[in-house]
């Protein structure tokens, strides 16, 4: 419950504050957000499976974000930034879908 509240408060704060994104972070923020979403779906699934562990969640969340940002950074350096970030988004999207399917099986039994 507190976690859901945290998400809601974060969205509201982001919409209200509207901070200027530092130029250095601009390319990484979207990918980082998608990676974090993937981590959150994974955590939700683990919770439904009953194997949720907060340490694992924190580590996977942070490492997902860092790795995604790193991949984008590397892609930019290699000159294939847009393709690589597309690839990252596709992979994360597939993972999100499979996690969502598992969650759906738990919640709706279907």
């Amino acid at each position: 419950m507190i976690a859901v509240l945290g998400l809601v408060v974060g969205v509201v704060a982001g919409l209200l504050v509207q901070p200027e994104i530092p130029a250095a972070v601009v390319p990484y923020l979207p990918i980082a957000v998608v990676a974090a979403l993937d981590a959150v779906f994974g955590g939700l699934r683990a919770m439904l499976d009953g194997i949720f562990d907060d340490k694992v969640f924190v580590v996977s969340f942070l490492s997902n974000v860092v790795v995604a940002a790193l991949i984008v950074f590397l892609g930019d350096e290699l000159g294939v930034g847009s393709q690589l970030s597309t690839g990252v988004v596709v992979v994360l999207g597939i993972r999100i879908f499979s996690n969502a399917a598992a969650i759906r099986r738990h919640v709706f039994r279907a």
Binding site: M1, I2, A3, V4, L5, G6, L7, V8, V9, G10, V11, V12, A13, G14, L15, Q18, P19, I21, L29, P30, A32, V33, A36, L37, V40, G43, M47, D54, F57, V58, F61, L62
Partner: peptide, 30 residues
């Protein structure tokens, strides 16, 4: 997990991370 809100360490850490996620999401969308 949802209803009786319990203030545990895990809940707080997850809330913090989700706050970051929501913040980033909203900023990016905006």
């Amino acid at each position: 997990g949802l209803w009786p809100p319990r203030v545990t360490r895990a809940q707080l850490i997850v809330a913090l991370l989700l706050f970051g996620l929501g913040f980033g999401l909203a900023v990016q969308v905006a």
